[in-house]
């Protein structure tokens, strides 16, 4: 399967323009609403709050009035893993194959009915993109009426995470099959967060398709597992070789630097190298 599908495989990914993001939280709520994410009375313990899409607030660490703030939305990165072979940090550790890497789409699945709740995948994920259902999901009386049938509600004791709204791909494919088309158009498959973002900061599409906006925005380097060639783009924790499919763009240097860990002086060196490389 792996080999077979590599030729015409899609690689769905996301590009988030951090200069456009205002931290408004639409993406978070669009995601919760689209994916039947439950909520509890108290959600202020963020270490125990299911937010497939979470917006982090980053500060540049400088004091008044040189302070700067940037919001960074963090969905599941759908890592390709080392060498982009599909051994994502989480997929490779799941003992029961409850999460797998789809070589046809590059999407990391999570199957709630297979998961038995060992939470090893959560420990493996450096992005904290995975959430455990510590509680039975519960909606106030009558509110379960708004639940969508496209995403199955999770039961207590299993892990869940962002699926790049895979059900929307399923629906788009359904339509394509009926219309006897082979492909799904770029606009036919968009995630709920992309669609909702009032700033248009999120772009979603096939990174392998040069016609798609995501490809054009970051210009992924196929020889380096999709590393962005756009100097303003970066991926979170690039150095861990998790090879995420979520890219960020920012004009602000401190933001790009915050995307990874650097020893003292390393960033400056890396920057020099990068500029040289682009000359």
């Amino acid at each position: 399967m792996t080999q077979q599908n590599h030729g015409n495989a899609h690689k769905f990914g996301m590009v988030i323009d951090l200069d456009k993001c205002t931290g408004c939280g639409s993406c978070m709520v669009a995601c919760m609403s689209e994916n039947n994410v439950p909520f509890k009375e108290d959600e202020s313990n963020k270490k125990d709050s299911i937010t497939w899409m979470r917006v982090y607030k980053l500060t540049n660490g400088k004091s008044f009035p040189d302070t700067d703030v940037c919001y960074l939305p963090r969905p599941c990165m759908h890592c390709g893993g080392k060498g982009d072979h599909g051994h994502s940090p989480c997929v490779s550790v799941c003992p029961a194959t409850a999460t797998d890497y789809d070589y046809g789409t590059g999407i990391v699945s999570q199957i709630y009915t297979r998961c038995f709740g060992c939470r090893y995948c959560m420990g493996a994920c450096p992005y904290h993109a995975r959430f455990f259902n510590w509680w039975d999901p519960k909606w106030p009386e009558g509110m379960e009426e708004y639940l969508s049938p496209d995403v199955s509600p999770r039961m207590r004791g299993v892990v869940e995470k962002c699926s790049f709204c895979f059900h929307r791909y399923q629906a788009a494919k359904d339509k394509a099959y009926l219309e006897e088309r082979d492909t799904v158009a770029e606009e036919e498959y968009q995630t709920a967060c992309t669609q909702a973002c009032p700033s248009g900061a999120i772009t979603f599409g096939d990174l392998n398709n040069p016609d798609h906006a995501v490809h054009q925005l970051v210009n992924p380097d196929p020889h380096h597992c999709g590393r962005p060639r756009n100097p303003k783009a970066f991926r979170l924790l690039e150095r861990l070789e998790t090879n995420p499919k979520v890219y960020y763009i920012s004009e602000r240097e401190w933001v790009r630097k915050a995307g990874d860990n650097y020893l003292d002086g390393e960033w400056e060196k890396a920057k020099m190298k990068k500029t040289k490389g682009h000359e």
Partner: peptide, 29 residues
């Protein structure tokens, strides 16, 4: 009703929508 999305092409919001609007069904229930 299961989900609220922004109306594409609307002069005010052209497909975008804020978190409160998306949550409107929670106001309903």
């Amino acid at each position: 009703p299961v989900k609220i999305e922004g109306t594409t092409g609307h002069p005010v919001n052209d497909g975008g929508v804020c978190l409160h609007g998306i949550s409107a069904l929670q106001y309903l229930y």
